[in-house]
């Protein structure tokens, strides 16, 4: 916790002259705004820990503004802001289990499953030879995300995507 906001440590560099004060130069991300800032601390100094924890929740629906999640054990429902959902919006479908980071019971960030299976809603038939030279073509998925897929994959097919890299993994039989 810094100035009342929860932060996560992105990078922590130990800086110390042979004879003198040791510092930790830390890059931290504000979990509310997503902004990354640099802070310097004297080594060994302590900072209040944010009461943040991760929990697995099921994505229910999006009403256009808010994203609704449910705890699959207690059936308790929570609302996440667009800010908190962030990039995950590109990948998640109703019923997907996501990692939700809660701070004081409020969702701070949403992490999609590492792999998702999504339907291709639009892609070029691309049978007439590959002109890009990259051995692939863009495909729009049902969630709106665009990924590069091999030429043989067609509209209406299901594919498996790695959400950490945004890359196509394989064709899939069913979700």
């Amino acid at each position: 916790m810094l100035d009342g906001d929860p932060y996560t440590i992105v990078e922590n560099e130990f800086v110390k002259p042979g004879k003198g004060q040791a510092f930790n130069r830390v890059r931290v991300r504000n979990l509310k705004t997503g902004r990354v800032v640099e802070k310097t601390f004297k080594s060994g100094e302590s900072v209040e820990a944010a009461d943040v924890h991760d929990t697995e929740m099921q994505y229910l629906y999006n009403d256009g503004i808010e994203w609704n999640f449910m705890d699959p054990d207690t059936f308790e429902q929570l609302i996440a802001s667009e800010q908190a959902v962030g990039e995950a919006a590109k990948w998640i479908k109703e019923q997907d289990l996501c990692k939700v980071t809660l701070w004081n019971g409020v969702p701070l960030s949403i992490e999609p499953p590492n792999f998702v299976v999504l339907e291709i809603t639009e892609t070029d038939p691309g049978l007439k030879g590959d002109t890009s030279g990259g051995g692939g073509k863009p495909a729009t998925l049902e969630t709106g995300a665009v990924v590069r897929v091999p030429l043989f994959v067609q509209t209406g097919e299901l594919i498996k995507v790695d959400t950490r890299t945004g890359e196509y993994v394989s064709r899939a039989k069913e979700a």
């Binding site: 003198g20 004060q21 130069r25 800032v37 640099e38 802070k39 310097t40 601390f41 004297k42």
Partner: peptide, 12 residues
């Protein structure tokens, strides 16, 4: 970054 929160002596 974070100079506001630092309490150091001269050599620090």
């Amino acid at each position: 970054g974070g100079v506001e929160g630092l309490e150091l002596d001269r050599d620090g």
